[in-house]
């Protein structure tokens, strides 16, 4: 086998100007264009509405900086929690042999379809001072969760967890068990196989899941406001501040919104998974 043959087989497909497309029917283009505009135009609207002269002043205020710091911190912690808790959950869902696994998976997907406000209320009724678990926490340890930064983290983790679990479970299923079987025939224990084969193989899926979860955490609003309230520096994340500012200072809200757009773009560009590069 020559090296040239190898590289040719491996090189990413470049568009070839000689290639003649079989064509798309014209009526696909119109709704496709509308869909694209529906996503892109509102962002353009934000840019158009922005007061660029006042931008530094609007973004560098105490309230804005507090919210940005809080958002980044809580989203980072929540994403970490998603990985630590959701990772093993995805492994169980993809590899485990339990009765009722399908039901379990449906439950895990619940936060995806549940209105976030409802999720927040549910968390409040569970962990509130009179809640199922919250009462015990309060009596035994004097801990109250709602309306604290911890509540923000919990709310974000609640809504973001399925994003990580779903994309990681998909990666695990795609990778299949074949490599793990090979590792076993080479004498690797299940723990070693998990560490040296399974995890590296699904790293791209884990990364894309983490990016999605982080983005979801940054944008979280409903569950946070229901469960954690809106206290500057403690629970008022960027989306909450945007909503609050909208009433009093529309231009401030626009500026903060643009900040969220920038964060989102960074997440997509930097964090977008490289696919399953290297996988044959």
């Amino acid at each position: 086998m020559t090296a040239a043959a190898t590289t040719r087989a491996r090189a990413p497909r470049k568009p070839d100007r000689h290639e003649q497309s079989v064509g798309l029917p014209w009526f696909v283009w119109i709704p496709a264009g509308l869909a694209f505009l529906l996503i892109a135009l509102p962002v353009v609207g934000l840019l158009w509405k922005a007061d660029w002269a006042r931008m530094p002043e609007l973004l560098l205020g105490d309230a804005a900086l507090d919210a940005l710091r809080l958002s980044l911190e809580t989203a980072a912690i929540s994403t970490l929690l998603c990985i630590l808790l959701g990772g093993p959950l995805a492994v169980v869902l993809a590899r485990g042999r339990l009765p009722g696994l399908r039901t379990l998976r449906s439950v895990v997907l619940l936060p995806l379809v549940l209105p976030p406000v409802v999720g927040g209320l549910a968390l409040l009724f569970l962990l509130g001072r009179t809640g199922l678990v919250g009462r015990g926490l309060d009596l035994a340890f004097g801990i109250t969760v709602p309306f604290t930064t911890a509540a923000v983290v919990l709310a974000q983790t609640f809504v973001a967890l399925p994003f990580l679990v779903v994309s990681l479970e998909g990666a695990l299923r795609t990778a299949g068990r074949r490599y793990e079987a090979v590792a076993a025939t080479l004498g690797a224990s299940p723990a070693l196989t998990f560490r040296r084969v399974t995890i590296p193989l699904v790293l791209p899926g884990l990364a894309s899941g983490a990016v999605l979860a982080f983005a979801r955490c940054m944008g979280e609003f409903g569950a946070t406001i229901a469960f954690a309230g809106s206290l500057q520096g403690t629970t008022r994340t960027l989306p909450l501040l945007v909503y609050l500012e909208r009433e009093t200072d529309a231009e401030g809200a626009v500026a903060l919104s643009l900040l969220l757009v920038v964060v989102a773009i960074i997440v997509i560009v930097v964090g977008r998974p490289r696919g399953s590069e290297g996988l044959t």
Partner: peptide, 20 residues
């Protein structure tokens, strides 16, 4: 279990670990 048998396997596909 497979990993304590001392039984090796060469399959149809090479299945080399792609990350190594």
């Amino acid at each position: 279990p497979a990993h304590r048998r001392g039984v090796g396997l060469l399959a149809q596909q090479a299945l080399l670990f792609p990350h190594l």
